[in-house]
Design a protein around this nucleic acid. Structure first.
Lengths: 216, 216
DNA sequence: TAATAAATTTAGATTAGTCTAAAATATTAT
DNA sequence: ATAATATTTTAGACTAATCTAAATTTATTA
């Protein structure tokens, strides 16, 4: 088996590669709050175990084996987040750190039973898809609110920023997963957006519109 | 905070001291499957942190601070065991190893909410008491079946051996927590015991009778 | 009570993960 | 194309936890 640290590196590489394809040493260091030198050491170790493809100075990609582990960790993370919110009444901005610990509990039996217990949820509390026990998952077609034009509408289905500051802001604004929104106005000057949410109007900045995701 | 390893040492010291008062280096080494030399190193570290009272060659006891941590770990272990059995349908002989991992999740909030979720259970699946969030707990007066005389009866309420072999044996024999038993015969030669359990008679060895605990 | 045995501690090494500072390589901009 | 800059790697050191082997202390027993 792999150490917590190895698992965290694989997960970080997976997440970064979803956005930028190949992954650099510095990106990993930034994402894990560590130093580039430490990352290099770990990359050698992971390459030795054939969990990543690594050539000096050229960045890394996950091997099939490495990706499988990364997805397994993500499955665990998201199932635990779902559990914490749905069963233990945590708020969606409070669960990340605890799930970071829980995701490293090894037992596959545990996570599959937890999945059963909760009825095989497809999305976690932030709208991210939960891989099934074979690592399969489907993301719905998500678009930032900022890509909508006036009169277009959609259903809030995810976030691009998972920080608790952002999540708390959304909760305060009642911009919650599952709610239907409609763009009623876009400010030409600062690109801020006015939304119709149920019977209220809500004004959000371009930055918020960029980080709030909907399905049409 | 303390490392997993430190927590495991404190827990081991706590458990051993319940049975034998003061705790020796070798007892700890045996209990943690490690070597006496490693234990000595850790004892110095724990003494440095004032979690144990330690004088060279004289064995150790927990300080108040150390005991508090040990009880907190035990609370977590037992609550998770309860969760695994009651909510996720694990068998009572399957939960120990997973709980050994789960008990090291730091969040106090998590464990208190888990406790709420399950309705503040007082005993874990093996009959061991679950400390409350202040570390308080009461053990019921447990006696081994082997201390009963003919015609005495009691309710199965705990075990002294937590090995899965023993737990599986008890399950197969339907000697399950909560069941009422009555001693109908004691064999003078090998001290084996015949029990009346519901409408069946069950014959158990002295060793089993020693490790099976009842309340009167 | 001295000799032997058992338990414990010290000394010195090892592994995993991390770090800083310096060296090597890659990228960019003139 | 080459100098300047940025990125990455290496070298060497540190901490936590472990180990074996040797030394020391305590306990036992003859």
């Amino acid at each position: 088996m792999n150490t917590f640290t190895e698992e965290n590196y694989l997960k970080a590489i997976y997440h970064i590669s979803l956005q930028s394809g190949s992954v650099s040493t510095n990106q990993i260091a930034a994402s894990l709050n560590t130093k580039a030198a430490s990352v290099t050491d770990m990359l050698k170790k992971l390459a030795e175990k054939e969990l990543i493809n690594y050539t000096k100075y050229q960045g890394v990609t996950l091997t099939t084996a490495g990706e499988k582990i990364a997805i397994c960790i993500i499955r665990k993370h998201r199932l635990w987040e779902y559990f914490l919110v749905e069963k233990l009444n945590f708020k969606w901005d409070e669960v990340h750190d605890v799930a970071e610990e829980l995701e490293h509990i090894a037992s596959k039996e545990l996570i599959d039973r937890l999945d059963d217990f909760m009825g095989h949820p497809k999305y976690d509390p932030h709208g991210d898809p939960i891989p099934d026990s074979d690592g399969q998952f489907k993301t719905h077609e998500l678009k930032p609110v900022s890509t909508l034009t006036v009169n277009e509408s959609g259903i809030i289905s995810g976030v691009r920023d998972h920080s608790s500051a952002f999540l708390q802001y959304l909760e305060r604004m009642q911009l919650i997963i599952g709610k239907k929104i409609k763009v009623t106005e876009i400010n030409n000057y600062d690109h801020s957006v006015i939304l119709q949410v149920e019977n209220k109007k809500t004004h959000i900045s371009r930055e918020v519109a960029n980080n709030l995701l909907i399905v049409l």
